[in-house]
Write a protein that binds this DNA or RNA. Structure first.
Lengths: 348, 348
DNA sequence: AATATTTATGTAAACTGTTCCGAAATTCAT
DNA sequence: ATGAATTTCGGAACAGTTTACATAAATATT
C-alpha cells in the first residue's frame, strides 16, 4: 500500500493539508508557484489520495454496481462491455454481482448496497423474482437505480430495453411466412415483462395469421437436461410443431441438441429461430436465424442515463423509457418456401 | 442513502458509539443484554455501517479487482463466474476492469488501484503488454497480486494456469494422428507465456512426428476481417495446410467463416481444432473439436489463493504455481482415418 | 492615507466507524 | 472486609481528505 498521505505531503512541504488538497485539485485560490511545488512532490512520491477518506468526506464513491443474472451469456457480457466503457471514461469503478436467477441473492445484494458503497445501481432482474419489495425498498434509499432488459414496469424507474414484443412478433411472423403452421414458443419462466412481452409478440403474430388458439408455450429453465427432456417430448408428441421460437439463446441450443439426437432436419422438418447474441450462430448447423439485441448499446445507454441521474441532471422524457430496437438476422434455420436461400456469407 | 449512523444509534440508546460498535460486532466485552438492545434498534432502523468509514479506519476495503482483456469471451466470463462465487461467500466485492488488450489501459488501471481501493488484484495480462514495469511497480506496493491464464512468469507472483504446452501438444498430436501432414497454427500476437506455451506444444508435436521445420505460424489479432484475410491467403496459397490449430476461439470462428466462403470442406479438406470454451461448439457445422480450459475452476482457485494471501496465510508451494489441466473434446471437425466417428450426441 | 477588496494560506471541524486507554462496577479470592 | 481480577462501558483519539471560516498580506479604491 502506498502510505504517502496528504498530511505527510503537507508536512514535508511545510504547508497546511488544506493547501495541498486544493493545490492538487487546481483550485483557483492557490498560487501557481505553490501548485507547482505541491504537484512536483506529489508526483515524485507517487501520492495517491486515499479513496475511502475521500468517499467518506464527499459522500461519493465513484463506483456503480451492475447486477445481472449471469455473466456466461453473450447478452450480458456485451452489456458489461458497454457499461465498463462508459464508466471508465467517467472515471468510475464498476462492481459486478451475479444473482444466478435467484431472488434471494438478488435481495441480499441489494441489501448490501444500501450503504453508500455505490452511487448507482443497474439491474436486470432475476427471472425467479416474484415480488419487488426489495427493489422498492432500495429505491426509497434514493440511490439512483436503472433497469435494463429485465425490468419491473410497475416501478417509477428508468428502463432501457429492446422492443421485445415487436421483435418477437417479427420473428414469429417470419416463421409463419416461411411456411410454419404450428409454432412452439420456448418461454423463460417467470412473470417478467420481458417474458410477457416476447410471449405476447408471439401470440399477436399467430392471431394476425388467423392462428389464435394455437399457442404452444413450453416453459424452460436453467437446467439443460430438463429443457432437452421437454423439447424431446414436444418433438415426439402428436402435436409436433414445425417451428420453434426460443425466447433465449440457451433454449435454441437445447433445441439443436435434441434435433441432432432425434435426427430432425432443420429447417426442412423444423424451423428454429431465437433471441441470441451469439456471433457464432452463423456457424451452427444449420446457421441459426436470430433476433440480435443491441446489448452493447443497451449497456452504454443504461450507464449514460445512470450517470445523468447521479450528476443530478434532469432526464428527458425520452430517457425514462428507452427502447433500442433488436434486429432479425435470417439464416438457414428458418429458410422455407417464401424465402430465397441467403447469401453464403451473412455477417453476424 | 440510509442516513442512520452509528452515532445516532448511540444517541438514541444513550450509549457511547464505541459500545454500539462493539455490540454490533459481537465483542466479548459487551453484555448480552446490551447487545440485544443495540441489535434490536439497529435492525429496526435498518442500520448499515458506512463502508468508507470502516475501510478508512481499518484500512481494508473488502473489495478485490479482476482485470481481464475482454469479457465477451467464454473463457473470461466463466472465470468471472468462479471469482464472483468465491468472493460472495467471503463477503467481498468484485470490481471488474477491461483492458481490451491494450497495455496503456492496463497500466492506467493498475495505477488507479495503487491506493487501497482494493485488497487484492487478479489479472490476466493483455497480449500487447511488452514490458512489465507497471506490474513490478504494483507488486512493490505490497498489494496481493495473482496472475491467471495470461501470466508473467518472470515475476515472483502466484500463477493459476492451464497446461498450455501439454494441451497444445495433444491437440496437434491429435491432428497428426487424424492424418494431417501440414498444420498451421493460428497464434495470438505477443510474447505472453500462454502464446509461447501453445506454440511450443505445437512445435514439439511436429518434432515428435518428424515434421520439425514444417512449422507454419500465422499471427492473428483482434480484427476479424484482418484475420479472415490472412486465413484466406493461407488457404489459397501453394502451401495450403490440411489442418488448422487455433490458439483461441475467435480464430477458429474466423477459420470457419473463411471455409464457408471458400467452400472448403471440414474435416475432409481441412481439419480444425481450437482452444475454446464455447459450449455451442458442438452445434457448429461441423462440430468443432476443442481444448476446453477449466475456466470456472481457474477463477475459483485464483480467488481462493488471492484470499489466502489477503488473509496472510502461508501459501503451500503447490499453490504458488497452480496448473489445472485442460481437456480435449474431439468432435467432427478433426475426424480422420485414425479416428472412429464419434457418438452422435457428444455433450459439451 | 485610510478603507475596501482580493489573493493566498492556515485552522479546525466534519465525515463515520474503530480502537486504545482508562474508569466504574461487579465478581472472586483470601 | 480488603485487594485483585474481571466484566462492561465511556471518552477520546484516530484514519485521510475536504471545506467553511478565519487571517494575513497584497492590491485596489476613494
Amino acid at each position: 500500500m502506498n502510505n504517502v498521505t496528504l498530511k505527510k505531503l503537507a508536512e514535508e512541504l511545510k504547508m497546511a493539508p488544506s493547501t495541498v488538497s486544493r493545490a492538487l485539485r487546481d483550485s483557483h485560490e492557490i498560487s501557481q508557484e505553490t501548485k507547482d511545488r505541491v504537484k512536483a512532490l506529489a508526483a515524485k512520491l507517487d501520492f495517491q489520495p486515499n479513496p475511502h477518506a475521500s468517499s467518506l468526506r464527499k459522500n461519493q464513491s465513484r463506483t456503480i454496481a451492475v447486477i445481472i443474472p449471469e455473466i456466461q451469456n453473450n447478452f450480458f457480457s456485451q452489456v458489461m462491455n458497454g457499461v465498463e466503457e462508459v464508466a471508465r471514461q467517467k472515471g468510475y469503478h464498476v462492481l459486478i454481482y451475479l444473482t444466478h436467477e435467484d431472488q434471494k441473492r438478488e435481495m441480499d445484494i441489494l441489501h448490501l448496497l444500501r450503504s453508500g458503497r455505490v452511487e448507482g445501481v443497474m439491474i436486470s432482474v432475476s427471472n425467479t423474482t416474484k415480488s419487488f419489495e426489495h427493489l422498492e425498498a432500495y429505491r426509497k434509499e434514493e440511490i439512483p437505480l436503472i433497469f435494463f432488459d429485465r425490468v419491473c414496469e410497475s416501478m417509477e424507474v428508468p428502463c432501457i430495453t429492446t422492443d421485445d414484443t415487436g421483435a418477437a412478433f417479427k420473428a414469429t411472423e417470419h416463421l409463419l411466412k416461411a411456411g410454419c403452421k404450428k409454432i412452439a414458443f420456448l418461454s423463460m419462466a417467470g412473470n417478467l415483462s420481458i417474458s410477457c412481452g416476447r410471449k405476447s409478440g408471439y401470440i399477436k403474430a399467430l392471431t394476425k395469421f388467423g392462428l389464435s388458439g394455437n399457442e404452444l408455450v413450453i416453459e424452460c429453465g436453467p437446467d439443460d437436461e430438463t429443457n432437452r427432456q421437454k423439447i424431446r417430448e414436444l418433438l415426439q408428441s402428436e402435436q409436433r410443431p414445425d417451428g420453434i421460437f426460443a425466447a433465449v439463446e440457451k433454449f435454441a441450443v437445447n433445441t439443436y441438441e435434441v434435433c441432432k439426437e432425434l435426427e430432425i432436419k432443420v429447417p426442412q422438418q423444423l424451423k428454429v429461430i431465437s433471441f441470441s447474441n451469439l456471433s457464432a450462430a452463423a456457424l451452427f448447423n444449420p446457421p441459426l436465424s436470430t433476433i440480435v439485441q443491441p446489448a452493447y448499446d443497451i449497456g452504454r445507454e443504461a450507464a449514460n442515463i445512470l450517470f445523468k441521474i447521479i450528476d443530478k441532471k434532469k432526464l428527458l422524457n425520452t430517457e425514462k423509457k428507452v427502447v433500442i430496437p433488436s434486429h432479425l438476422v435470417i439464416r438457414e434455420s428458418t429458410i422455407g418456401k417464401h424465402y430465397p436461400k441467403p447469401s453464403v456469407f451473412l455477417k453476424q
